[in-house]
Design a protein around this nucleic acid. Structure first.
Lengths: 199, 199, 199, 199
DNA sequence: GACTAATCGAGACGGTACGTCGCGTCTTACA
DNA sequence: TGTAAGACGCGACGTACCGTCTCGATTAGTC
């Protein structure tokens, strides 16, 4: 990945899209590889064969860049919503979401990015937005099956239970985020949401 | 708080407990007050009337010290378990837990500490331990009401849903962690756990 | 001197000569002003309107930087050698040398720098070089008048008597380093050097 | 040397002379051995099997203690004055003085101590006194042979030429301080001092 | 023979300076 | 003009030493 920089030509006065790609790729790569250690702008720029200024030209801060790198990665793995029943759609969504956070590389990147978002306001804003987008996707799944859900059900809470478990297990401990867990969680939430109707 | 240092006597060759207290108190105080901004060892040491070295003598890093400060604070607010039914005990626990993370001061401290734990391995280890202690407390509540719970229920997953929602709402967004939310979450989990029996 | 920093522009990827000048000037200034007290890198950097790292980027240690500052100052006051007799040239050189160490500012700087050179190997090497340069200058004066000097004369010893008296009086006590002393020393050495011929 | 401390008994409410000796011996030893590196109070105390406070109880500062250690060492090697002629007495004194500074151990100690005296006022005062004592000894040698010396001779300057060469060669460079040099220096000064009469 | 007083080894403490690391800005030289 | 390179101001970090303080043990004189 580092060697590619030598062959990438300048593009003059237009923004060099290849450089942007290299930066984001290297960023995710290093975030994953670092295992909790610090990822510096210097390292990323060097590995991407890019000047540090090129990073600051396009992102307001290190955290913002990292977050965009992460968001791209996550967006690429967005599961196409679903087809039919609440139980099936929800399970599919949770499975896909958990899987996307599965590889140790991505998980480490998630951890580092969340940490960054706690310090850097720009990163924080992007994290809010990123998270909101994911929440909306899940909420849509629930809303689509509104007839299976009790009227008093707290959809936001259910959404947060999914992402809460996801982030919690990413950030601390080493509990699994695999398909069985996803299925149990989805099943539990279905019961919870249904029940709220006749509660 | 800063002025007390002048009156705090040395304790000779024994560790000065008053200094330890001052450091931890100031740490929590500044974590809360900072609102996400950086809390420096220098500031803490100065406010505690302590040399920087005194901090590094007893903690391997800044993060470890912050984590201990937080753990002490949280432990102090441990809700006494409960009395009787699963629904009642669980709701009480979740309410108390959410309340402990409620004041903006503590919430900011939680955020900063979790971020620190993602970088500093020593802090990470302490965070694992801290989190494990809290998880065990909640698990005990569930186990105590085992007869109300289906045999296939995933207790760990239930526990993680509680703390997941807690941390998720602390770290991103500004969704509330108040009593109604706690009650709804507890009720939902009771339904999940019961349902696993007849599911 | 401190305010200039605000107007000093960056020089890009080339070394900023203005910053170097500011550092060295402030260093000599503070060495002289301090009167033996400690001169810190922090203070120098602040007064020069420079980051601490900029000092460490170009000098291996504080001592090395101080030594270079001193060497520049001393080199600027190099006495132009002379013209004619041994007695006249030598007296002129010693006078000029003593004068250069005369102002209390410079004398304090000499003391501090010599002290630094005893601890910091990098500073020590620079001090050796600085001292060697001065010794060579004086030796040239003697060699130029070789016909007045006995063949057995120990020129190095004569040189060391001059600089020995200089440093000795700088470092300890408060004996003067004025023109009369310089003249007496020069005259005495002339007698020593001549005498070696007929000794 | 380090192990002796275990066998050294307390002396109750009287000062422990053995501890004092151990401190001074270790100090000189480490000064010599360090070769310019830093000698810390901690190291000395540990090697002497002594608490740091025991050092500060008896000396006002590190420098003062080092200087006393050095002074003791030097005083022990004071040459017995002399016998008769200026040339003989002076040569004997210079030889003995140079010899005392000869061993690399002592020379390193001299260097470190002089450096310390430039920073620590207490050490400086002791250094002044130490130096004054040695100067007086040499001056006495000259005064004893006053009839061989011209009336206008600057005795203080002659004395400073001896100690100047000594210190200069100790502090910088590696020029020798052996008997031939001592003899040449003594001879030169005799000529200088005599000459002042008929100059 | 107990009591008091002072010293001793040990080591924690409040400070100050050090030298390193990383961030984000700025300038140069090149393409 | 956009870019790689890299110096710069800033400021936090963790370390090293200094000189002070308190402890508990030990011993020498005093009552």
């Amino acid at each position: 990945m580092e060697k590619d920089a030598e062959r990438r030509p300048h593009t003059g006065r237009r923004r060099n899209e290849a450089a942007r790609r290299a930066i984001l790729d290297v960023a995710v790569d290093q975030l994953g590889r670092s295992g909790g250690g610090p990822v510096t702008v210097d390292t990323i720029a060097a590995a991407a064969g890019v000047g540090r200024q090129t990073i600051y030209r396009w992102w307001p801060s290190k955290g913002a860049m990292l977050l965009e790198a992460l968001a791209e990665r996550a967006a690429a793995e967005v599961p196409a919503p679903a087809t039919g029943t609440l139980a099936g759609d929800l399970a599919a969504f949770v499975r896909a979401t958990f899987r996307a956070a599965g590889p140790d590389g991505t998980r480490a990147a998630l951890r580092a990015t969340m940490a960054e978002a706690q310090r850097d306001p720009a990163a924080r804003a992007l994290m809010e937005e990123f998270v909101a987008r994911r929440r909306r996707a899940l909420r849509d799944v629930l809303v689509a099956a509104r007839d299976e859900i009790g009227p008093d059900a707290d959809l936001d809470l259910a959404v947060d239970q999914v992402f809460g478990v996801l982030w919690y297990r990413c950030l601390v401990g080493s509990a699994p985020l695999d398909d069985p867990v996803a299925d149990r969680l989805a099943a539990g939430l279905v019961r919870q949401l249904r029940g709220a109707a006749d509660g």
